[in-house]
């Protein structure tokens, strides 16, 4: 028994395309290919790709830092987390460092409000953040080889 045709599941195809990309994004070429595979128009697939916040059509960094600024995190000081990150990385929200290492994004609630303020870097969760903690995390990631 098979629930549905995997080849036609656009969201799964987009996720896969993004995972395969070195720069955490979906290229225009890939979008066209997926449209073809799924039997949809390019605009439909473009519409889907731009709807979901986990997808990007612009190249992004090796590490995507997603900081929550919803109610509980905001209350527990997420603004200062953004400030430290912007200062340390010398970029604004939505930008990528020139070396292609980090992208800074703002995200809605991540469901880890018991550890607010919180963020995710790629697939890892970081909670109970403080400016000192952020600096330590960045140092560790900077020292990692490409």
């Amino acid at each position: 028994m098979k629930l549905r045709d995997k080849e036609k599941d656009v969201i799964a195809l987009l996720s896969e395309a993004q995972r395969e990309s070195k720069h955490n994004y979906i290229t225009e070429e890939k979008l066209k290919l997926i449209a073809q595979e799924a039997g949809l128009s390019y605009s439909e697939v473009y519409g889907v790709a731009t709807f979901y916040s986990l997808f990007s059509l612009k190249p992004r960094g090796e590490y995507i830092i997603r900081v929550c600024d919803s109610g509980p995190c905001h209350l527990m000081g997420s603004r200062s987390i953004f400030e430290v990150l912007e200062e340390e990385l010398k970029i604004k929200v939505g930008e990528t460092t020139p070396d292609g290492k980090f992208t800074l994004e703002e995200t809605s609630c991540l469901g880890i409000c018991d550890e607010a303020p919180a963020m995710m870097i790629n697939e890892k969760v970081y909670g109970n953040l403080t400016p000192q903690e952020i600096k330590k995390i960045l140092k560790r990631l900077r020292e990692k080889k490409w």
Binding site: R4, I11, L54
Partner: peptide
């Protein structure tokens, strides 16, 4: 009785 479950992962949307 037959029953099967599949996971669908969200892609970031409230």
């Amino acid at each position: 009785f037959n029953f099967q479950i599949e996971i669908h992962q969200g892609a970031g949307s409230y």
